[in-house]
Design a protein around this nucleic acid. Structure first.
Length: 586
RNA sequence: GUGCCCGUAGCUCAAUUGGAUAGAGCACCAGCCUUCUAAGCUGGGGGUUACAGGUUCGAUCCCUGUCGGGCACGCCA
């Protein structure tokens, strides 16, 4: 039988170095993080450590000298072929081939759980993402936040964090009022009452659709005194100039007073409608949430007033020009910010302070906000508020996601030509499919602009990275089908027979998977998973073309089938992290 | 104007966050299907990491400046 393999080679080597450094360093406190990395070149072994170079200065010895001491002090390991000193003082580790081969049993045994680790130590982490205003359909910009957030949450969960996925519903505030009034105006039009429709109201078709739904269900039930709607407007303005912010606010106020109790119905109807649409859209996209957190609930439960009151008590507020300001400049912000307007209304910032306070009160050890990059200027004031409230602002991590720009026929296509509306996420999904959309969204680093090539995403060709990876999975399924054996028996295969260069490279690639998941979690970088999968698929395709699996030599065949079964498993696990399907046939 | 982010092969992007000879995919050129899916594989050319300095054993990565691009600068959300 084979030798065994450690659960994780990197961790194992870390342990060895930790014990070694205890011996080598003098009694004074020498601080050095032990970092084990994969090497880039075969001549440097499988893993390397630069600890000796880091210790050179504090220990006042040459790196190579320290490296020799470390190696001498290191306990022996059954998995190591040899350890070498190289270059300026690198310690290079060469893993025994038998240990790599034995690792295959780990993959087969862990199955869909392979890749998981306890890196996060089960600490509570919240990922808040999308959080789009429920005032219209999600567009392709939201799509990237959704794909990124969902993949990141999956990665964190697999890396051992206890993850809560949350959507912050902006159901309070002016934008919702504008949507309600826009819908009511369209509804009035259906009842034959035509009031000029402001340019800065919501123009989309979906508003007319909602108006129609209300009209069909309630006929003219919500037609009240439309003649009062333009009260307070200058007579000359009736025709055109009603699209300033002030006049829109007046329109909202008038609508509220005319409709009375019925305003709540309209408001609630459009909110329910849009939120439901958003939820369905995301669900179809494979993006789900544990909590839908209502902004309005912060007001209803007095949490906004409470948060502002706390700041007041701590002397971080002052009054000026009739408004209440927060001294965010004391915590590094560019200017102080208003939390309560002259008219007594709290700002969005005020409810956001309450929301973040609430997040930490719920006991999350880390809070991740995924925002569009255009909100980067908002970070200092939120962190300032947390500091003012004596919370650890470093526990709030902001992951910025840049916009995705769609390209069709090599030309920008993110804006539709008519009416300047964004392409919706739903349109994108219908055009390229969920798999391609999910993959393309996360195959770049999130803080980089994304050129989303629609033609490429749709193409069923070798140019399309999604199909390339899925095809590897389907090919393996096809081989295993033709074999017609019982996969479970492969657990007894003699993996020592896997000895050609393709097989050894693939074994190492499989060993790397859990480390890649940890790196992706640590860096908030699901794109690392996408790159990893491409590498794995590429190495498999080369293997496929070079080596026949269903050979007459039974032990050899079983060993190879054990390997490709493991590859299939890892492809599937990785694709699942990204929300992409792993088809068995293509 | 001020602040933040970015500048890597013809194009789109990586680079284990300061490590060893900067790597992939497209595109281009030349090959591979009577054998487990050619949606695949093999080989080839391609670079002063925008530019100029600095920090150190070592810089695509950190610091300063210049040039170029994006975003943000509301009592909107």
């Amino acid at each position: 039988m084979n030798t065994t393999a450690p659960p994780n080679f990197k961790d194992h080597l870390s342990q060895l170095m930790l014990l070694a450094v205890e011996q080598v360093k003098s009694d004074n406190e020498v601080q050095a993080g032990i970092e084990i990395v994969r090497t880039r070149q075969a001549g440097h072994g499988d893993y390397a450590c630069n600890l000796a170079m880091q210790l050179a200065k504090p220990l006042r010895k040459s790196p190579r000298e320290i490296a020799a001491l470390l190696i001498a002090a290191m306990p022996s390991s059954p998995y190591l072929e040899k350890v070498e000193i190289a270059g300026a003082g690198f310690i290079n580790f060469f893993i025994k081939t038998t240990a790599k081969q034995a690792f295959l049993y780990t993959v087969l045994q862990q199955g869909s759980a392979f890749g998981a680790s306890d890196f996060g130590q089960n600490s509570n982490i919240q990922v808040e993402f999308v959080s789009a205003n429920p005032t219209g359909p999600l567009h392709v910009g939201h799509g990237r936040g959704a794909a990124f957030g969902a993949s990141l949450a999956n990665v964190l969960s697999t890396a051992g964090f206890c993850v809560t996925r949350e959507f912050y519903v902006n159901d309070a505030g002016r934008q919702m009022d504008i949507l309600a009034v826009s819908t009511w105006l369209r509804y009035l039009a259906l009842n034959g009452i035509h009031v000029p429709f402001p340019d800065n109201a919501y123009q989309g078709e979906y508003v007319k659709v909602m108006a129609r739904l209300i009209h069909e269900a309630h006929a003219d039930r919500y037609v009240h005194h439309p003649e009062k709607l333009l009260q307070g407007f200058p007579a000359s303005a009736h025709a055109q100039a009603i699209d300033t912010d002030e006049s829109l606010d007046r329109l909202i106020a008038n609508a509220k007073s005319i409709l009375g109790q019925d305003y709540a119905y309209i408001h609630n109807f459009v909110l329910t409608e849009q939120l439901g649409d958003c939820r369905n859209d995301l669900m179809e996209f494979g993006v789900t949430f544990d909590i839908w957190f209502s902004e309005q609930s912060l007001f209803d439960n007095g949490l906004v007033a409470h948060a502002v009151h706390m700041l007041e008590e701590m002397k971080f507020l002052y009054r000026q020009d009739g408004a209440v300001w927060f001294r965010s400049t004391e915590f590094g912000d560019e200017k102080d910010r208003v939390v309560q307007r002259e008219n007594g209304q709290y700002t969005y910032f005020a409810s956001d302070i309450a929301y973040h306070l609430n997040k930490f009160e719920r006991g999350f050890e880390t809070v991740i906000n995924i925002w569009g990059a255009d909100h980067h200027g908002y970070i200092p004031r939120v962190k300032a508020a947390l500091q003012a409230l004596a919370l650890d602002a470093d526990k709030l991590k902001i992951a910025l996601v840049q916009f995705a720009v769609l390209y069709r026929n090599g030309k920008k296509a993110s804006m539709s030509t008519r009416s300047g509306e964004f392409v919706t996420l739903r349109e994108l999904r219908q055009e390229v499919g969920n798999d391609a959309a999910r993959f393309f969204y996360v195959m770049r680093k999130s803080d980089q602009h994304l050129d989303f090539d629609l033609d490429l995403a749709k193409s069923q060709s070798n140019e399309n990275p999604v199909y390339y990876i899925q095809y590897a999975h389907a090919r393996i399924c096809s081989v295993l089908n033709q074999w017609e054996g019982d996969i479970a028996t492969l657990a007894d295969a003699d993996t020592n027979l896997l000895a050609n260069a393709f097989e050894l490279a693939l074994l190492q690639r499989l060993i790397d998977f859990p480390d890649t998941v940890v790196a992706a979690a640590q860096e908030f970088s699901p794109h690392l998973i996408a790159f990893y999968l491409r590498e794995l698929a590429s190495e498999f395709h080369s293997y496929y073309n070079s080596t026949h699996f269903l050979v007459s030599d039974m032990p050899l065949m079983e060993a190879r089938l054990a390997l490709i079964t493991s590859i299939r498993q890892v492809l599937k696990n990785g694709l699942t992290l990204l929300g992409v399907s792993a088809p068995e046939k293509m």
